[in-house]
Computed example of a mutant assay.
Amino acid sequence: MPTLSRLVALSTVAILGVAGQALAHAQLTKNVPADKATVATSPAELDLHFSEELDIKFSGVKVTGPDKAMVKTGDAMLMDEGKTLMVPLPEMLGPGAYAVEWHVLSTDGHKTNGTYGFTVKP
């Protein structure tokens, strides 16, 4: 039955190949401020750390504050060998809840996105 064992081997390789591709997406591993955190003062920047190197041209964030008002952000830049997206916040954030919507493209071509939130104390 060499044919059956060859079929099993090929199936295993195919399954592992698909699983490897699924793991290749850039996943958010840490963010500052942290999700659901309450911070005492307005952060000067947002730092989003990912598991993969990013393509800055196709990566960014949108921040909304209290009453769904858009928050002005500076130009995003990459740090930590391209795995951290740093987004300056040029204006002080007032007290309230903020939502961060992010989208990134890893250098291997996979897109991911997500949201998180934090609160600035009154």
Rank of each mutant, 00 (worst) to 15 (best):
K121A: 15
L16K: 10
K68H: 11
E91C: 01
P95Y: 04
M70G: 07
H49A: 15
D108L: 06
T115G: 04
V87T: 04
H110I: 09
G74K: 03
A37P: 00
M70H: 06
H49Y: 11
K68L: 15
L89T: 05
V104T: 10
T73I: 12
L48M: 09
A22L: 14
P66F: 00
E91W: 00
H103Y: 02
P122G: 12
V104D: 07
T12R: 15
L7F: 04
P2Y: 08
E81M: 12
A14S: 14
A97I: 03
L89Q: 05
T12S: 15
T84M: 12
T73N: 04
L28T: 11
V100Q: 06
D108N: 15
P2D: 15
A76D: 05
L89C: 03
D80A: 13
F118H: 04
T84R: 14
K36Y: 06
R6Y: 07
A34C: 01
S51L: 02
G82F: 03
P95Q: 09
V63R: 03
A19K: 04
A19Q: 12
G82A: 09
D108S: 12
L46I: 11
V87W: 01
A37L: 08
A69Q: 13
K111T: 10
L93F: 05
P122D: 15
T38F: 01
N31V: 12
K121S: 14
T12M: 10
E53P: 00
V32L: 13
K111P: 01
G60C: 04
K83C: 02
G65E: 09
G114M: 02
T112H: 02
A99Q: 11
E91H: 04
L93N: 06
A26C: 05
V120C: 04
D47C: 04
M1Y: 07
T41M: 05
